[in-house]
């Protein structure tokens, strides 16, 4: 079985790549062959599944171990599994969160602790709008848009791991209770989120005044 998976790995291994790595080009080919788009969460789920060290890179040992573990030895079987993950992302919120948290780790520029603002925003747009999300814009409040607007207003600072993890929880709560009943200034939310709450409140006041 290992042998078959290894063959698949070699198929996408490019000449210029390091011996045990599939580089960005091979990775894109592989994802295309298993019908995974680059702008869907499933792409990140596959990366998490194969324990990719960074975005767009597969390492041999982890690749083999992951697929063998799922008994997938052919592209067709891998395609099926990718589809399974796609469905799971829509129904299993814990799984979805684990992919979300993994995404932070692989989105950092090497050697940095934070994720750059623009990259973070791209991922949020992906996670909080794709089917299955309960943390995006609601019918009454454009939570995601406001969050991004708020961050832009304060200078597009890099996003910390804590803020990354907490904002998802916060937006889920905010979607459930738009009046912030769950929030308390002395609670454990990161200060940036506290500021966001104040910002939203001010914005709503402004909205009322205009009416």
């Amino acid at each position: 079985m290992e042998h078959s998976v290894n063959q698949v790995f070699s198929k996408y291994h490019g000449a210029s790549d390091e011996p045990d790595k599939i580089g960005i080009e091979g990775a894109m080919r592989f994802l295309g062959d298993i019908d995974v788009q680059l702008d869907e969460i499933t792409c990140l789920a596959i990366a998490e599944f194969c324990k990719c060290p960074t975005m767009g890179e597969f390492t041999r040992a982890e690749f083999i171990q992951a697929w063998v573990g799922q008994r997938c030895t052919t592209i067709a079987q891998m395609k099926t599994h990718a589809n399974r993950l796609r469905m799971k992302l829509r129904t299993d919120m814990d799984y979805r969160r684990s992919v979300y948290l993994y995404t932070f780790l692989v989105s950092r520029v090497q050697g940095q602790r934070h994720v750059q603002h623009d990259i973070a925003v791209d991922h949020w747009r992906l996670f909080f709008t794709e089917e299955g999300s309960n943390a995006g814009n609601s019918a009454t409040t454009p939570w995601l848009d406001w969050w991004i607007e708020f961050l832009e207003g304060r200078g597009k600072r890099p996003v910390s791991r804590d803020l990354w993890g907490q904002i998802e929880l916060f937006l889920v709560e905010a979607n459930k209770d738009e009046t912030f009943g769950f929030w308390d200034v002395e609670g454990s939310w990161p200060p940036t989120i506290d500021e966001f709450v104040a910002w939203v409140k001010a914005k709503r006041e402004e909205g009322k005044m205009e009416e």
């Binding site: 804590d162 907490q166 990161p190």
Partner: peptide, 24 residues
Amino acid sequence: HVIDIKKNIEALMEKDYIERLEGE
């Protein structure tokens, strides 16, 4: 102020002295 304490908790998270687990 609680806010100041929270800011310093955040600062220490970023310096990897402490980390947040699920559930506050």
